[in-house]
């Protein structure tokens, strides 16, 4: 009996080793989004383009992308071509949230680089961003036809992210809609 007790450390260690081994294959850097499957927060903001007042009701009735961006944000510039291409191809509507930016700078940026957005709302104090759980621009949400957040991508969208994460997410949401 005593001799068996001496084996306890080996077993505890083995359990620990298995745990650590599994842990190696987890990605420690996926950041969570608690807002998945929750509706978009309410808001009342003006657009960048023509200062018209927009609320949640004015958002598209079909699945769309909500893209948080700013003129100061370098990665936003980097993902602009992808979003533009998506707009050209008519994949789905894209709505922008101009986050913690200056209106004139935002307009300049859109003139210089082209805008993939149907429209962008001005979130100068960042309140909408906070309510969306935004860490910072760029972040992109896939929202379904009922205004519910279904997917969140943090950081720049490169081709890999677009193909492997965002497109499938969009497809999944669209497929549901037809059921």
């Amino acid at each position: 009996m005593s001799r068996l007790k001496l084996f306890i450390p080996v077993f505890v260690f083995l359990a620990l080793a298995v745990l650590l081994w599994r842990g190696l294959y987890l990605d420690p850097r996926t950041l969570p989004s608690v807002l998945i499957d929750k509706p978009l927060p309410d808001f009342e903001l003006r657009t960048v383009e023509n200062a018209s007042l927009i609320t949640k009701a004015d958002l598209p009735d079909e699945p769309f992308l909500l893209n948080v961006w700013g003129s100061y944000c370098l990665p936003c510039l980097q993902e602009n071509p992808i979003l533009m291409a998506a707009k050209e191809a008519g994949v789905l509507p894209i709505v922008g949230v101009n986050y913690k930016d200056k209106l004139n700078l935002a307009r300049l940026w859109m003139d210089d680089n082209g805008s993939p957005f149907d429209f962008s709302v001005v979130d100068e104090d960042g309140r909408l961003g906070i309510n969306l759980g935004v860490y910072g621009a760029p972040e992109t949400f896939v929202v379904d036809g009922n205004g519910v957040i279904r997917y969140k991508h943090i950081g720049v969208i490169d081709y890999k992210a677009w193909e492997q994460e965002i497109l499938p997410a969009i497809a999944a949401v669209k497929a549901e809609a037809t059921l």
Partner: peptide
Amino acid sequence: LALWLTLGAGVT
């Protein structure tokens, strides 16, 4: 913590 998060977010 929030500040530290930004390092994780988008660091490729």
